[in-house]
Amino acid sequence: MSTETTEVQSEVKKPKKVSEPLLSKRRKQILSDPLNEDNPITVQVLGICSALAVTVKLQPTLIMSIAVIFVIVFSNLIISLMRNLIPTRVRIIVQLAVIASLVTIVSEVLKAYSYPMYKVLGAFVGLIITNCIVMGRLEAFAMGNKPYDSLLDGFGSGFGYAWIILTVAFFRELLGSGSIFNFKVFEELGIAYQANSMMVDSVGAFIILGILIWVQRYVTGYVEN
């Protein structure tokens, strides 16, 4: 008897519940906010360490971006899927375990299929575990939102991180090594260019990142409270 009534109830409920479109306005915002107005690096000023460390050249930076996007998207998804099961008292440990596992997978895959890149990035890929952006998204978003939304948030934050470090890497490689993706631009153009070794140092990244934050805040009018 009781099962019949619930079935009837659910049948009645179904047509009433209008499912949100796959890319509603709210969801588009989840995706686009971290790219600009709520950017993890330039606005939240998170994940600076890796933005300074890996951005000497574009190629390793690109690999690093892909690695971070992979880790952030999947950890967001996994944590969101089990958000109601995770005991509150040990949630940080659970989050860390998930992140660390994903990072280890990335690192092992890199070692197997792109060994030269692994030699360049090895240490930094391991440090994605401590990247505050990943941890921050899990704690602030995935723990309280549905899987699909968390997935979108992961993509948004991942790309928000990626485009900033790629921009920094573009200027650092261009000015510090005179090349783009190891393609010697100035040599090809026939311009004599003395590489600026300050750009190769972390100092160069600080300066470019500073300018980037300045420009972005000027455009968006963001002011820190």
């Binding site: 998930v98 092992e108 895959v109 070692k111 197997a112 060994y115």
Partner: peptide, 19 residues
């Protein structure tokens, strides 16, 4: 998690040694 890690390590070992 431990099982997943062990699986990755074992599955990728030949490719890693080769590279």
């Amino acid at each position: 998690v431990g099982g997943a890690m062990a699986l990755t390590s074992v599955a990728l070992k030949p490719a890693q040694q080769k590279s």
